[in-house]
Amino acid sequence: MQGYGNIFYDAILLGNLWKHRATGGELEQKREINLIEKIKTDRDIHKDDIIPFTYNEINNVYKLATGFTNEWNKVFNFLGKLNYAYDDKDSKLKALAKLYYLSKKVGYRNLNVMLSSSMVYCNIFSNELDVEKLKITTFNYSLPNLVINLLEGLTPNEVYGLFPIDKEYDGYKLETKDYYSCIKAAKEIGLNKHMDHEETKDFVMECDTHIFIFNTGVAIMSLVSDFNGWDIYDIIKMFKDENPKLHIVK
């Protein structure tokens, strides 16, 4: 597992932080302070980098470790009610709308880390300390996986009611997705067909340009990359092997 910027590293780091924070007491408070200080020190080491990529990655974690209090509470509240989100179509759509709202508040990537680290914290708090189990927990409760699972059983038209396609019609000029290509791909699934798990993946990758769904597609590839230590070429090959008809847009 790599360092900052890898969702599995960030989630386990912040999960440990929440364990110290929730346990309370003088010793755990000291551990929390020391962990935050370590993140701050790591950030300061990279503050003068010519390319601030690493600095930005650490700074995002530092901000999540020290702020977003209201948003963290909303994430914990959402996860506490997650089982009920799968009860019926309306519950799924409401859960997706809530995730979209939270992503607008903190950013898609930050929400991805917050959701995963919240569940890692629950496992650590229950003394489930196996690293591989924590990685699987991070994977399963990542934002893109939650979105995919909530989309399952919905129809493309139902999803478009919540996440309409961007009204762009000249994708052919740049060989990118637009309204026409999304509708064409959605019709191949069936606009009123209840999607199975694999069809939801096709939908996310091929049938929508809404920023939230677009970010889900990007995050899926990033998630697989972080889990396996792959580069972008490995990711594209994996998706094409799984789905030969998949078109990776430029």
Rank of each mutant, 00 (worst) to 15 (best):
I45R: 14
E26D: 10
M195K: 01
K187P: 08
N112H: 15
A186C: 03
L134Y: 08
F212N: 12
H194Q: 15
G107M: 07
D44Y: 00
E28L: 12
I33S: 11
M221D: 11
T176L: 12
L64D: 08
D231A: 05
I12Q: 15
L143A: 06
I36R: 11
A219K: 00
L82M: 12
F78A: 02
D90F: 05
F214R: 15
A186W: 02
E26A: 13
N60T: 08
M119A: 00
H194L: 04
H197R: 09
F78G: 00
I165M: 13
M119P: 01
D42M: 09
Y121R: 04
M1K: 00
Y141P: 01
F163T: 04
N215C: 06
D196E: 07
K40A: 15
N16C: 04
N110P: 06
Y108K: 00
A97V: 09
P144E: 11
D208L: 13
A22S: 07
D87C: 09
Y172A: 12
K237H: 10
I33P: 00
D234I: 01
D130I: 02
T138V: 11
N192W: 07
L150Q: 12
S103L: 06
D166F: 02
N149C: 10
I136Y: 11
E242L: 08
T200H: 11
L93M: 14
M238R: 05
